[in-house]
C-alpha cells in the first residue's frame, strides 16, 4: 500500500546553500508523524519542499503514490494537503470570516459551518480582523483554513510557537481530534516532548539530514536520547 505522503531523497537549496541533504520520510494512513529537530535543522524547509514553496532540486514527493514534486503549490493543496504555515500567516487586515473564504470550497465534511463548530471561538470572533486575534485564535484560524480544503494530510509548522501553555494544550487537542477523525498529520515541532505525546512515529532532523527515525514511544521513553537528538532540555 502506498503511503499518504512519501518523501524520497529530497535535496533542497536556498540559492546556493544546500539545506536538505537527501531527506526521506513516510506518513502512513491515519498516522501522526512528528518531525523534530533544533532550530535551523531543516524542518520548515522540508514542509516548504512538500508544498513546492521552495521546490526540491532533486528527489520525489508523492501523495498516495501520485508524484506531486514541484507541482504548483495550489495543485498540491487541492490534491489534499492542508498546510498550516509557520507563524500562521493569517491575513491580518481581513476578518476571520473573510480569511475562511480564501481557500476554494472542496466537497467533503469540512465547510465554514463545520470549522466554526470545531472552533466556536472563531465563530464568536468572525467579524474581527485576523490581526486582532490572540496567537491561539490565529492558530485555530490557520488550522480551520487548512481544513476547508478537506485534506487527506495536514501538515503543521510549529503550531505551539509563541502560545501560552493552556492554549498549546487546546491546539494539541484539536490536532489529536483531527487524527481521530482519520486525517494523517505531519507535525513539525521544536517542542519535542509535546509532539511526542501525540505522535505515532518520529523523525529527527539535524543539519538537513534525518538522524533518527522510529516509533514515538522510543524517544518518549528515552528522554536522554531525545534531548541529545532534538535538544529540548530547556523546554517541556
Amino acid at each position: 500500500m502506498s503511503a499518504v505522503l512519501a518523501l524520497e531523497g529530497l535535496n533542497t537549496f536556498y540559492g546556493k546553500s544546500h539545506i536538505l541533504h537527501g531527506v526521506s520520510l513516510r506518513v502512513e494512513e491515519g498516522e501522526l508523524v512528528a518531525l523534530l529537530g533544533r532550530n535551523g535543522a531543516g524542518k520548515t524547509t522540508t514542509l516548504r519542499s512538500i508544498m513546492s514553496l521552495t521546490p526540491p532540486r532533486t528527489g520525489r514527493v508523492t501523495l498516495h503514490g501520485r508524484d506531486i514534486t514541484r507541482a504548483p503549490p495550489y495543485r498540491i493543496a487541492r490534491a489534499g494537503v492542508g498546510y498550516v504555515p509557520e507563524g500562521r500567516r493569517i491575513f491580518g487586515h481581513m476578518s476571520v470570516h473573510e480569511n475562511l473564504q480564501v481557500p476554494p470550497a472542496v466537497s467533503g465534511p469540512w465547510n465554514i459551518g463545520a470549522v466554526y463548530e470545531l472552533f466556536p471561538r472563531l465563530h464568536e470572533r468572525r467579524h474581527s480582523k485576523g490581526g486582532r486575534l490572540s496567537g491561539g485564535e490565529q492558530e485555530m484560524l490557520a488550522i480551520a483554513r487548512a481544513l476547508l480544503l478537506n485534506p487527506k494530510l495536514l501538515i503543521l509548522d510549529e503550531p505551539s510557537q509563541g502560545l501560552a501553555p493552556v492554549i498549546v494544550q487546546e491546539v494539541m487537542r484539536a490536532i489529536a481530534r483531527m487524527k481521530r477523525e482519520g486525517l494523517s498529520v505531519l507535525l513539525v515541532e521544536q517542542n519535542a516532548r509535546l509532539a511526542l505525546q501525540l505522535a505515532d512515529k518520529a523523525y529527527v532532523l539535524s543539519d538537513g539530514e534525518v538522524v533518527h527515525q522510529g516509533p514515538a514511544a522510543v524517544l518518549r521513553a528515552d528522554t536522554a536520547r531525545m534531548e541529545a537528538l532534538a535538544g529540548v532540555s530547556h523546554l517541556g
Partner: peptide
C-alpha cells in the same frame, strides 16, 4: 470570493497559493 482572494493575495501571495488558490 475573487475580491477577497485579490486582497489576501496583495498581502501574501505565497500563502494563498498554499491555500489552494490558483494564483495564475
Amino acid at each position: 470570493r475573487i475580491g477577497i482572494r485579490i486582497r489576501a493575495g496583495n498581502a501574501d501571495l505565497e500563502t494563498i497559493s498554499a491555500m489552494g488558490v490558483n494564483i495564475y
